[in-house]
Design a protein around this nucleic acid. Sequence first.
DNA 1: GTATGATTTAAACGTATGTTTTAATTCTGT
DNA 2: ACAGAATTAAAACATACGTTTAAATCATAC
Lengths: 211, 211
Amino acid sequence: MSQPDTKQRILNSAEHQFATDGYHATSLRSITAAAAVNLAAVNYHFGSKEALLEAVIIRRLDPLNKIRLGKLEALLKKAEQVKEVPASRDILRTFIEPTLHLRQQGSDTEDFVALTGRILAEPRGVAMSIFIHHMEPLMIRLFQALSLSLPELSHQTLFWRLHFVIGSLSHIMRCHERHSIVPEDISIDPSVDELVEMFLDFATAGMEETK
Amino acid sequence: MSQPDTKQRILNSAEHQFATDGYHATSLRSITAAAAVNLAAVNYHFGSKEALLEAVIIRRLDPLNKIRLGKLEALLKKAEQVKEVPASRDILRTFIEPTLHLRQQGSDTEDFVALTGRILAEPRGVAMSIFIHHMEPLMIRLFQALSLSLPELSHQTLFWRLHFVIGSLSHIMRCHERHSIVPEDISIDPSVDELVEMFLDFATAGMEETK
DNA sequence: GTATGATTTAAACGTATGTTTTAATTCTGT
DNA sequence: ACAGAATTAAAACATACGTTTAAATCATAC
């Protein structure tokens, strides 16, 4: 190819701008300008703006979900071998840890984390259906595993608590930098690992609460 | 006035459409058409589309925050009289309960709840700064109260846990109807009061976790 | 080296947007 | 009833958008 990978350059640029400004507030002209490619390249390579968004999402989401599902299945298998139920903290970890760890792997993936969090919040119709379609198998498995680990909870309670955890997670993913609704005197950014453990403390306690 | 309250009709229509489709995906033409007023009325009464968004937010947020702050101050005062620290569950309740109770007060406020949740997720620049400005005093007070109630937690831990709670809450506010990433067999929608208690169980446990 | 298919380019298309303008209309106070 | 201010109305404005077109350029295989 003449230009080194036009498609990838578009995907990177789109990922960054969608994550920063949102889907509707981002124009193809600014995406292609930042990627230093021609305006028509998006429609040539992807078909439409919406298809570009889908490509942006899928490029990262599928590998991520493979990792998450792999860790979850491995955990369940190991627990079964010892004839024990897996701890809810470990189950949640298989979902949370790979997600937040994306932030360490360079700024491109950082954009995706923010974008993912934002999609969960955007009005349905555009990306939500794509997203749900790619998340559903994992979520079902996660729900089953938690149900196994916390049999005393009703399905409704478990469902909502998982809902709460996902809400928190998507919030963290969106506001990785300057959230600061509460302006702290000393607001040292924790490391990703610290954040994971801090969130697991919170989420596990909320999950396991007997009430 | 000839038409009964053009401004209110615009605010209602805008609130509904901003909440449903998002700010950027909503046009002034569809807002004014739904409100059955002239297109130019928005710029005449509010000045611009962005100023309209601000008006939509402030109309509901200020009264809501007055209620929340009032309940919080009353709680703190009562606790001080008995020389005790308020329970973290009660503190969280002053914030969560008035928010979710908006959903019972008619469908107009329901729209606002969804919109509020969405603003927390939208890219900063448009509404975020408005929102933060109006939330800050309340959040500071909330943080102080929780710090009083949970003195064993470091400020950093407390800050993040409050962050998690707000994330969950905004997620609930956004997805009041069709969440269903996990398609439940029996997904009976709980009443608002049940939801409040269920969320308080979760959030309080996560907050109070000693680790 | 030239023909073929894939890609890039520049330009235009049709449409939709937020905003402004100017005139008509309605309300208010006397 | 009437003058003046406030509001509404219809139209136009300038601009930005996603998409399409048609020619130019490139890569590759014969």
